[in-house]
Computed example of a mutant assay.
Amino acid sequence: MNTSALDDLLLTRASALEAVVVGASAGGVQALLAIFNGLGADYRLPIISVLHLPDDRRSHLAEVFQQRLGIRVKEADDKESLQGGTLYFAGAGYHLLIEDDRSFSLSREEPLHFSRPSIDVLFESAADVYGAGLMGILLTGANEDGAQGLATIKRCGGLTVVQDPADAQVPTMPQAALALHPADFVLPIPGIHALLAELNKSPC
């Protein structure tokens, strides 16, 4: 990403952002740790992440990430209201949705793309709530989950970011997203990290 493009984004859109949603699958743990590195408790936006998990075991993602990151990290709870300065993870075995009152809801509906939690489910519900105030980020993964959801974010006026497939450990998921729509930014992991950091510097 060149500096002028980033500056244009910050001037025109960043101050209006209300939330960030992130999806990843195979190779996602290291990618997520890298893009969130350096974010602190003063981060102004809530970040909500789905990483594909086995359906039959408790997730320890929040604990693992909290040990390595400065931002507050927790697993999203049903009916919990979203707060800035917090990285939320979807728990195992439930779809994670965002409701109109900016709270979470959990669903045991059937898996989508063989996944529960599903990235598409989170992205589409968040797009309905936040519209142009949402940024969606799709990272490495081995299936097409998240592609339709990212297109929905774009259609609702939000900003979309896709990891450069050449940079992804598993490029299938980024490639599927780019096949559906041209993302606002196609970036390697360091570029996505820089974008998230710059969003926190923009005037509210």
Rank of each mutant, 00 (worst) to 15 (best):
Q163I: 10
L195W: 14
G141E: 00
S107A: 11
K74H: 02
F36I: 00
E110M: 00
D8G: 11
Y43V: 10
N37K: 12
T152R: 14
L17T: 04
Q148M: 09
G91D: 13
L82W: 07
A90Q: 11
A151M: 05
R72D: 03
L150P: 03
T86G: 12
G93F: 14
P111E: 00
V21Y: 07
P111M: 03
H52A: 09
Q67W: 01
L112Q: 05
A132P: 14
P46A: 05
S107Y: 12
K74W: 00
F185M: 09
G70E: 00
V22L: 07
M135N: 00
G28H: 08
V129H: 06
T152I: 07
S118W: 09
H52V: 10
V22M: 07
T3A: 15
I98N: 09
D100N: 10
G149D: 00
D145P: 13
A5T: 12
M1H: 13
L97F: 06
A34Y: 01
Q83L: 15
R68Q: 06
P165M: 05
P54H: 10
S202T: 06
L51D: 02
Y130Q: 04
E99L: 15
I98T: 09
L122I: 01
L150E: 03
V64L: 10
D7G: 03
L17W: 09
A62L: 02
I192T: 10
G84C: 01
L33G: 07
G27K: 04
R44W: 02
G40H: 01
A142S: 08
D120N: 09
V20D: 02
V129Q: 02
F114I: 00
G23T: 03
Y130I: 03
I47S: 12
G157C: 09
E144N: 13
L51Q: 14
R13G: 07
F65V: 02
G85L: 12
M173A: 04
E99G: 13
E99Q: 15
G149P: 09
L195Y: 11
I71V: 07
M1A: 15
L61N: 06
H181M: 15
I137R: 08
A41P: 12
S118N: 04
P182L: 05
G191M: 05
S202L: 02
E144C: 11
L138V: 15
I137E: 01
G141C: 06
D184L: 13
Q83K: 15
A151I: 02
H60Q: 02
P174K: 03
G136M: 01
